[in-house]
Design a protein around this nucleic acid. Sequence first.
RNA 1: GCGCAGGUGGCAGAGUGGUCAAUUGCAGUGGACUGUAAAUCCAUCGCCCUAUGGGCUCCGGGGGUUCAAAUCCCUCCCUGCGCA
Length: 415
Amino acid sequence: MLKFTIKSRIKHGLGRAGIIETDHGTIETPAFIPVATKATIKSLTPEMVKDEIGAQAILANTYHLYLQPGEEIIGKSGGLGKFMNWKGPSFTDSGGFQAFSLGPAFGKGIGKLSTSTHERELVRNDTDNTIQAKINDDGVRFKSIIDGSEHYFTPEKSIEIQHAIGADIIFAFDECAEPNAPYEYQRLAMERTHAWARRCLAEHGSEGRPAFGGVGLGQSIFGIVQGGRHEDLRRESARVIGSMEENGLSFDGFGIGGSFDKSDIGTAVSWVCSELGEEKPRHLLGIGSEVADLILGIENGIDTFDCVAPTRMARNGAAYTSMSEVAPPTSKNRINLTNAKFTNDFSPIDPQCNCYTCKNYTRAYISHLLRAKEMLAATLISIHNLYSLVNLVKNAREAILEGRWDEFKKIHVKD
RNA sequence: GCGCAGGUGGCAGAGUGGUCAAUUGCAGUGGACUGUAAAUCCAUCGCCCUAUGGGCUCCGGGGGUUCAAAUCCCUCCCUGCGCA
């Protein structure tokens, strides 16, 4: 079980700076955690992520690694870190999110919500009959994105796989409902998440809280708070997950889940974090595409973030700019390097930036790589984008430690 | 020189009398991307305007047939292949 120590707090707010200790190293929080879904940070080597970007930990995905290459292979290799040559702490997401992301959206027409008989069952189906995920109280039936084969995930199964993969921090299997799902469904998903959380805790405990390799702190498990955009649900979920105990075990930290509308991030996080005890770390799942998301999260008590946006946007040609200044009124502090105006721009992506890419390459060159569809473009922009977010959060940490949060916030987010 | 095939929007390539300003792909232009089915997706892509509509120009050049032509006929130019 990890150790978490708070070093300093924001005066007015829930934010704090601390240290998470794991068997594979420490994470100075708040921290931005790059996503390595399939045991790779897309287009980057682990050395780039660690040395050039300065990331402290990475987050991989249970569902994707279960499908390919399979958790046994990762286990045999010595665990996720060994397998991918990542020399630092690691997380795995439980696969719960994939029931949401692979399932058809509520917006396209609510699936069948059957509350009949003894079992609550929700089947999300689609008009075009491409059902990728079905959820009931027991678990989730997935269709493989690789070959279409069916797979069944339960909370127990997810934990079992995550034990085999061997990340330092694993997440409970949860159900992520869309923010625009009706209240009654948000509640159902939340309650199901709670029931699943209990089963995850039991499964984690039944394995004897294994330390990968048998020694050390072992794997830690984070419970996930759901509840959508509703204050009552969020607070209830945080209280339930925060105090959950099964055979004497409780969660080692918490994830805050959901698919957030932009305006909901700050409120949802503050509701949840004000209910959770402050002694355990909190991870905001999937968030951190824009400066304001991170600043608001940190101020409201988030310790770690993960987000695919920096690497995905990089592959699509978008790069962060002006991270060290007030976000422009448009709030989109990024440029699209595929724009014609950059073909002749021989300045770096961000003149203020100290990343490898900005120190060595021009917008014009990267623009050319993008147009030529050369994969180095993804690498160079990914380095820059991740560096931007990782260091923004690092600077936020420094500001908290040095007692100048308000000042720091003021130069990054206009109120 | 003769024969055959062909010349369509930046490129490739459909269409072969009206529903064609012209399918589609690429390129171009702009946008989106938040626990990664994403090196993806969306929009736009002849010119002009009082713009969920209207006008103009357009399918190698010129001429013709027809109510109507990118589509049929004549002619010229050009390209490829074959024969001399």
